[in-house]
Design a protein around this nucleic acid. Structure first.
Length: 155
DNA sequence: GCCAACGTTGGC
DNA sequence: GCCAACGTTGGC
């Protein structure tokens, strides 16, 4: 069964344009350092699942594109890279703590910004809009997915 | 730069 | 297992 997700990315690190312009429009989703988000990748996300590509920590946070899950999980190499901001000295190669998967950008859309999301009654209970939410990966209901996709790409 | 909210760590 | 201290996220 296809499921749907919202994935936050800081555009300074990997924007929707970066993803679109990558080979095969596919990028490895590095840097997840939260167990709940990791577990979504490991246990919930399947190849072909729909992804809302979200820009965070930037002047105009919001949904900026449609993407999809393009691989299963594998160890995130940045956890072993001492020069990476994502280096985790506690993670062992024989027992990697952090995983990533590939995300393929399908379409860059207009910005559906956070204020617009908050102003849309149909989206009021989206996980990402919940007060205090900091998860970088959140599940999206099929109804929310369909609503947003219709708004952003029509049909 | 501020700060609310939340996760993680570590002493006990 | 509790919980205070600390660190991080992320919008503003």
């Amino acid at each position: 069964m296809t499921q749907y997700w919202l994935m936050k990315s800081e555009p300074e690190e990997c924007s929707i344009d970066d993803a679109i312009n990558a080979p095969d429009a596919t990028v490895p989703w590095t840097g997840v350092r939260n167990y709940q988000a990791r577990n979504f990748m490991r246990d919930g996300m399947k190849v072909g699942d729909g992804v809302l590509f979200y820009h965070s920590s930037c002047p105009e946070p919001g949904i900026v594109g449609i993407a999809k899950v393009a691989s299963g999980t594998r160890p995130d190499p940045t956890q072993f890279d001492k020069k990476s901001p994502y280096f985790d000295p506690a993670s062992k190669r024989e027992e990697p703590r952090w995983l990533l998967l590939d995300v393929k950008a399908v379409k860059k859309t207009r910005l559906m910004g956070l204020p617009e999301l908050r102003d849309t009654p149909e989206l009021a209970d989206m996980v990402v809009l919940k007060r205090g939410n900091r998860l970088s990966i959140t599940p999206v209901s099929e109804a929310h997915w369909n609503f947003i996709k219709r708004k952003l790409v029509g049909g």
